[in-house]
Design a protein around this nucleic acid. Structure first.
Length: 351
DNA sequence: GATACGTGGTC
DNA sequence: TGACCAAGTAT
């Protein structure tokens, strides 16, 4: 699609469909900046009341700079990402001190300020100063990836560069403010992440994703596998020639396999702390405890400690067994059970 | 490049 | 219901 066609269509759509938002009624850099910081990773509906309150409390950058940071944080309360509020305040003070209350009027100048990255610098430069620089946010990634059928990974540096360069090629240099907001608004209202409104879309014929039915596959975002860290405390409870085991069920790892009595905590704790959380265990005496075993799964890191306990009576053991759905096994029986590899390692080291 | 940072909405 | 996502930035 020719650049002129794209920009005309998207800006026509914008003129007909855009929301009336307070920061669209001004070109004051202060208010554009304020709105952009508030809207970082934040929906309009959530940020709007905060914007109104900030403008009411701090009509210009000097008011904001003069305020104590606590007052800024108080107004920000509930919005999240609180570093934004601290940087907002830092930035206001810096603008007053170094620039006599005037924001730098260029993309490069703006990007140096705290809390202003490539997206926000481009947004302020284009909207407040009409500098022809393209914005690239989550909406722009999605809209361009779909319409132009781009399958580059938006999480990679190369992908980001590609989209930034494409956005700048397409940009209507005579109306960078309208163009940029048009692409974002189109992504926010029409070309939605799920169930985009392709029926009757102004780009239905030109859109690669619509033509090839790739809407749900674009944009491509390589999701980084995040590895969860879990803390396992295994208690080895023996009584005469029997020991307690439990068959694992549910949706967790090692389904159907057997392991020892397990207490899982959200963070690393001392064994004594963990024992205290259990009425029966706390009365037992600790025979010995192992080092922390590190066990890696594809998407989990287990930090496991084994603790051998001596209960004072068979009665206590039975109580514990019943409450925790543990079962008693003798040693020969255990060797025939399917058990997690970690347990196997421990048993071999401690026969 | 990966990760932390918050809250609220969506399917 | 547990991801996934939302006008990203700083480290």
């Amino acid at each position: 699609m020719r650049k002129e066609i794209f920009s005309k269509k998207i800006m026509d759509w914008y003129q007909a469909n855009h929301r009336n938002l307070p920061w669209r009624k001004t070109t004051e850099p202060y208010k554009i900046w304020l709105s952009e910081i508030i809207l970082q990773q934040t929906r309009v509906a959530q940020g709007l009341p905060y914007y109104e309150r900030f403008v009411g409390a701090f009509p210009d950058v000097l008011d904001l700079a003069k305020a104590p940071v606590q007052k800024v944080l108080r107004l920000w309360q509930g919005l999240g990402y609180y570093t934004r509020a601290r940087n907002l305040h830092r930035c206001a003070k810096l603008v007053v001190r170094d620039f006599e209350g005037h924001f730098p009027n260029s993309f490069e100048g703006l990007k140096k300020l705290p809390g202003i990255g490539p997206y926000t610098a481009a947004a302020i430069a284009s909207i407040a100063f009409r500098e022809p620089v393209g914005v690239v946010d989550g909406n722009v990634f999605r809209v361009l990836a779909r319409i132009f059928g781009i399958d580059k990974d938006i999480a990679s540096d190369a992908g980001k560069k590609y989209f930034f360069s494409l956005a700048n090629e397409l940009l209507d240099e005579a109306h960078p403010d309208i163009f940029n907001q048009a692409v974002m608004e189109f992504g926010a209202l029409h070309c939605l992440p799920k169930n985009p409104k392709c029926d009757g879309c102004t780009f239905s014929k030109q859109c690669e994703a619509n033509q090839k039915d790739l809407q749900s596959l674009l944009p491509v975002k390589h999701k980084k596998l995040k590895i969860r860290t879990r803390y396992f405390y295994y208690f080895i409870v023996r009584d005469k020639n029997k020991m307690l085991l439990k068959q694992r069920n549910g949706k967790d790892i090692w389904q159907g396999l057997y392991d020892f009595y397990l207490i899982e905590t959200s963070r690393r704790k001392k064994t004594a702390e963990v024992v205290k959380t259990d009425a029966i265990l706390t009365k037992a005496s600790i025979l010995k405890e192992s080092r922390v075993f590190r066990h890696l799964l594809s998407h989990q890191k287990l930090l496991v400690k084994f603790v051998e306990l001596k209960l004072h009576s068979t009665k206590e053991m039975n109580l514990l067994a019943r409450r925790s759905e543990l079962k008693k096994f003798t040693k020969p029986e255990i060797s025939n059970l399917p058990k997690p590899i970690l347990i196997d390692r421990y048993l071999k080291a401690n026969p």
